[in-house]
Structures are given as structure tokens and as C-alpha cells.
Write a protein that binds this DNA or RNA. Structure first.
Lengths: 227, 227
DNA sequence: TTTCTTCAACTTGTATGTTAGTATACCATG
DNA sequence: CATGGTATACTAACATACAAGTTGAAGAAA
């Protein structure tokens, strides 16, 4: 049985992935101009697929299209990111409390396996930020899928890209991987011990990536943020 | 001081509002085909602005574009809607508990004013579903803005259209307006009395628009829903 | 009748003009 | 020098033409 829906790959799909990746990894810097014409030239295509790509990127707030002026990579808006963090906190703390309550065997096992993978990756040198991010995401995704909230995970992913860029900023510094892993382990413990009080508090801190360092990042990369 | 940012009105903006409205109000029915060419003809424009509109509508899951086949109004996916309800429940119950805790004077006053408007509208005959929806939304929006979560409200609105269509189904029947108003009043009471237990329970029921009636709607409009 | 092939009509993707708004460098004017 | 108008280059919005895949009906073959 073939359930992988064959969807022809269009030029715009490939370009979308390329440009999105380059924005998230700060290859294109916040504020940088991305004109249709120059992108079309770069990828060797016409402006039509580029327009599609830019409009899609605008819908996830990665670029802003200023009519007849230009299209620009959005700067990081901390007020916006702050609300995305709050959104995830509200949802994921509720989900985790539910897990703490019900102690679903299969899910807890899956989460422990996920943590093992993270531990393994951490033993090596030169940790690839994107690879670690994938494992980080896998842990959080399991929280959703384990509660049969796959759609909810997908929905949140669509608005999560701004937060993703924000987290990338301190991940490239390379010293927060271990902290994230340890947070996950503690969250795991709290769920197993039904310690919802500490669970919610730690998750808040975890999603914020340690409040004190945020201020440092905002200073260090202040040209990446909106005023 | 002029703070309304003058943004030139483009053809696609008007068409977007038109088509979106017609989908939400079921003028275009779920599953119906919306070809670029026929829409272009209907609005007397070329396919370019129509493509913009349809791509934007796809990003909020109101249409699905099947390449080289056609563009169709999406059917209501209850699994998806269920998760949107859960999302709103997680967020709004947290916000309301926060309000219950802090008892912010100005916000409580604003909420009471909002309820008065709803009460006034309910005294008349022939209640306009869209007008009531606006007042319903205003109550929920105040919960966000009162906690300085304007961005979060905006984010949720972007994924809320599917839920909006779902609620429209029983609103046109015209017998749930009073129930919604009464729910709001009770939620208000629970917040003032810091009764978070009942608050969370009622909000869940409120967002679901009464579980028992949902089954009836799914039967009555079953051609509007996915299998 | 049933099944397969062919083809025409229709779909969106892509390419390329054309139009109109914006920003800026330049120059004339005070 | 300061100011205001103008020409110009650039932008995205919009129009149009062509390309390529999908669908389904008509018709031939079994």
C-alpha cells in the first residue's frame, strides 16, 4: 500500500525551503532586502515562483512585503516571540500535566529513547546546531503526538519560526545544548513524580532559554531585533 | 497625530476579504471548486491577484490548492477543529486564571461593558449572526489584550478561521446566542470569585459550544465535514 | 457490453510584459 | 546654504501568454 502521496516537486517548493532555511540560519540577515528580481536571477527562474515563495514566507512572518518598496527579512520582534513562548507554555504545560496524571507507558518510553539520542549526540564534539534542534523538537513533538494532538503540533509549527530563529541565536554559541538536555531530563522526572508545580515553572524557564541570557543576546545581536 | 498607517488598497485585498467572507458564511460550500480563471472572470481581473488571494486563503486552511487539478474550499476537519479548541482552552483558561488571581480593575470593567452590549443585542429580534460573533469575539479578545497578549490574539486569529466556520453552523440556527451570553456571564462570575475549577470546566464546554449539539451538527451538515 | 486508447478541455505552474507607486540623486530657485 | 521640483532607477502589483499535468468523455477494440 502506497500512502506517500506523490506530489510533484515544483520549483517554488525547492526555493521556498532554500530561502526559509537561509533566513532561519541567518544567512540572510534580519532587515536585509530580498527583491523578487534579484532572487529570480539568483535561482535562474522567473519572478512568478519567487512571488509565491515570498508570500508564503510573509504568512509565517519571516519576511515583510512593503508594496512598491521592497521585501525585507523581518527583524526579530521580542514582543511577538514572547507571546509565542507563552502560547507554547500554556499548551505544553497542560499536556505535560496530563501525562503526569495518566503516566502513559508507551509515551514515557518514547520520551526516554529521545533523551538517549540527545545524550549520545552531546558526547561528540562539534555539535551541529540544526541536528540538535531536530532532537530538541522531537522531544516536544512527542509530548503532542503522545496526547494525540498532531494537528496542534502542526499548527504551532506554522507560527513557531520566529521563535526558532531566536533560539538559533544562542544555539550557535554552543553552550546551551547541555542545559536543554538537562531541562528535558528534569521535566521527565517531574512528569514521572507528578510534580506539576515544578514542572510548569521549569518549562517556562526552559522555553525562555534562561531569561538572564536573553538580555545578553538582545544586546549582542541588537541589530537583529526591532526597536 | 495620524497613526493609521496609510496602506494603499490593492485589488487582491478587497477580493481576499470578499472570498474569505463568502467561505466563512458558507456562500461557497465546503468542497466547492474555486478555479483561478472563473474567479478572475467574476471579479473582472487577471489571474495574478486571484493567485495571491488563494495562496493566502490556503495558508489559513480555508482552501486547498491541488496543483494542476484545482483549488477547493476545504471541508471542516473536526480533528483539526478539536485541536484549535484545545489550543484556545489551554491559553484562555490560563489567562482567565491569571485575571482571577489579579482582579485587574480596568479589565473587569471592560468585560462587563462588553457583556452589556451583548445583552442589548439579544433583546432585539432577528439577531445578525455576524454581529453577534463580533461581540462574542470582543469578549475573548479583551481577555488577551487585558493581559497584554495582543500578539497572541492575532496569532490565534490566523488559525481560528476553521473554528469560526464551525461555530457559524450553529449560530445561524439562532438558538445558541443566549447560551453564549450566559456562559460569558458565568465565566465572569467565576473570575471574580476566583473559582478556577469551575472556570476551566465551563470554558471547555463553552468553546466546544455544548458537546451534545456538535454531534447533531455533524449529522445535519455531514457533507460539510471530512470523512 | 466491457475495456482500453486517445484527445480535448481544463487546471495550476511558470515566463514575461506593462503599470503605477516609491525613493533618491540632481539641479534650479529662493 | 536651504528648499523644492524633476528625472530616473527601482520596487511590487497586475495582465497576458505559454507550458505541463489531470480529468473525463468519446470512440475503437476485445
Amino acid at each position: 500500500m502506497e500512502n506517500t502521496k506523490k506530489r510533484r516537486e515544483f520549483i517554488k517548493d525547492r526555493i521556498y525551503e532554500d530561502v526559509r532555511h537561509d533566513i532561519i540560519t541567518f544567512h540572510y540577515q534580519p532587515g536585509e532586502k530580498l527583491s523578487e528580481y534579484s532572487l529570480a536571477e539568483k535561482f535562474g527562474v522567473s519572478r512568478s515562483p519567487i512571488r509565491s515563495v515570498l508570500q508564503k514566507l510573509e504568512s509565517e512572518s519571516l519576511v515583510v512585503i512593503d508594496p512598491q518598496r521592497g521585501t525585507f527579512v523581518t527583524k526579530l520582534d521580542f514582543d511577538y516571540i514572547r507571546d509565542i513562548i507563552y502560547l507554547r507554555w500554556c499548551v505544553e504545560s497542560t499536556l505535560m500535566c496530563q501525562i503526569a496524571e495518566q503516566q502513559p507507558e508507551a509515551l514515557l518510553l518514547a520520551l526516554r529513547e529521545c533523551l538517549e539520542k540527545q545524550k549520545t549526540l552531546l558526547t561528540g564534539h562539534d555539535i551541529d546546531p540544526e541536528e540538535f534542534t531536530a532532537l530538541d523538537n522531537a522531544f516536544h513533538e512527542a509530548i503532542y503526538t503522545g496526547n494525540h494532538r498532531e494537528n496542534l503540533w502542526d499548527v504551532i509549527q506554522e507560527v513557531n519560526t520566529s521563535y526558532l530563529r531566536f533560539r538559533m541565536l544562542d544555539l550557535v554559541q554552543g553552550n546551551s545544548h547541555r542545559q536543554i538536555y538537562q531541562d528535558h531530563c528534569k521535566l521527565m522526572q517531574y512528569m514521572e513524580n507528578k510534580d506539576t508545580q515544578n514542572l510548569r515553572a521549569l518549562l517556562h524557564q526552559h522555553l525562555n532559554g534562561n531569561l538572564q541570557t536573553n538580555e545578553g543576546i538582545k544586546r549582542e545581536y541588537k541589530e537583529y531585533f526591532t526597536a
